[in-house]
Design a protein around this nucleic acid. Sequence first.
DNA 1: GTCTATAAATAGATAGAC
DNA 2: GTCTATCTATTTATAGAC
Lengths: 214, 214
Amino acid sequence: MPQGAGSGPRGRYHHGELRAALIEASFDLLAESGLAAFSVARVARRLGVSTAAPYRHFPDRDHLVAAVAAQAAVELRERFVEAAEEAGEDPAERFAATAGAYVRFAGTRGAGFDVIFAAELDRLHDDALAGAGRPLMDLLLDLAQQALGQGPEASLTLVEHHVVAAHGYVALHREGFFARRYEGVAALADRAVAGSRTLLRGMREPPPRPPGSP
Amino acid sequence: MPQGAGSGPRGRYHHGELRAALIEASFDLLAESGLAAFSVARVARRLGVSTAAPYRHFPDRDHLVAAVAAQAAVELRERFVEAAEEAGEDPAERFAATAGAYVRFAGTRGAGFDVIFAAELDRLHDDALAGAGRPLMDLLLDLAQQALGQGPEASLTLVEHHVVAAHGYVALHREGFFARRYEGVAALADRAVAGSRTLLRGMREPPPRPPGSP
DNA sequence: GTCTATAAATAGATAGAC
DNA sequence: GTCTATCTATTTATAGAC
């Protein structure tokens, strides 16, 4: 039993658990304040460890963020799979459901596409992170393809609008834009799903008339 | 001629111009680093004035941000009007064009819905700011109403999806999500306009079949 | 593996000189 | 109207004790 945390409900992290605890606390901090306000010192403080302790496990702030991002990518993909499963058989509903899953995940867990694909982390060449983003997008492309029944180019366009809209809800939520309109993330997630349905419906329709065509 | 800035191309701000110069430099800083990284000290530094100088004109950081936000709301509304005018007669195109205007404005000027409606600024009770956001949304609602030809509730839904998507492009752009895909804001603005057209088309269509209905 | 102590940067904000 | 000087707080990161 390599631990001694029994001295209190939130005992200190003595041996070997700090790395995982840092990542978990980082999610909380990101959810509360976003990536820009994220700091190693704040994570350490809320775990009750010294500000120096994290540097035993991560060389700097960005490597900690990268570890969070890599785990977020894996978790988010799981939420996507679950959401599609729960949505039933209709490919349109399976696709749209991932917008809700995104808003709920990024809204409560704090790490979404902004963290997972953050440009700041590019220079790290973190293998775990580099390999984590692709399966996420591939899954969405696959669901879009099945919902749309058109070529890969159209699917990519749909996924882009879909992802951008879902992230837009999270971003504006975090900035307080919806503060006076909605209570929580769950309501916004439903709006995002409705938005994706609308988007899909719009892409199945032919454009009314390209300006200037006969 | 109450000034003495002739000693250099970027001379110091001696009398009376500092307030306006601070607001203008704040736009630049917001465009480069976003609201979270905004600081009074950085604005002062890039103007070549002391960090104390801004406090002669604004009591604190938030009041400076509020002044920027109020001006941004006015400017953004002008961009909306121009974009709708340039889009021609088609109400759908007039509405969709505002998505492009938003992405270009918020992407290059740095202050969009996130700044204009920032929850942080709520407690200020700044009259200029409080009155600036509403005309912006009213204009969009009006254009949506004309494009959609349905009730005010449907227009509100459309505007929300429209605004959220446009802001999503700006937010993900700023985080580096599109860094490897697009060169600049102009390309993203076009994608946002295309997205709004799709959205509008989707809202004109009846839902295929509400689950469980005959 | 974690701690204390420490360093240098940066930020917000104020007092008082000019 | 702007400056210098100053204070306090925060963050990143390192060195060395336990």
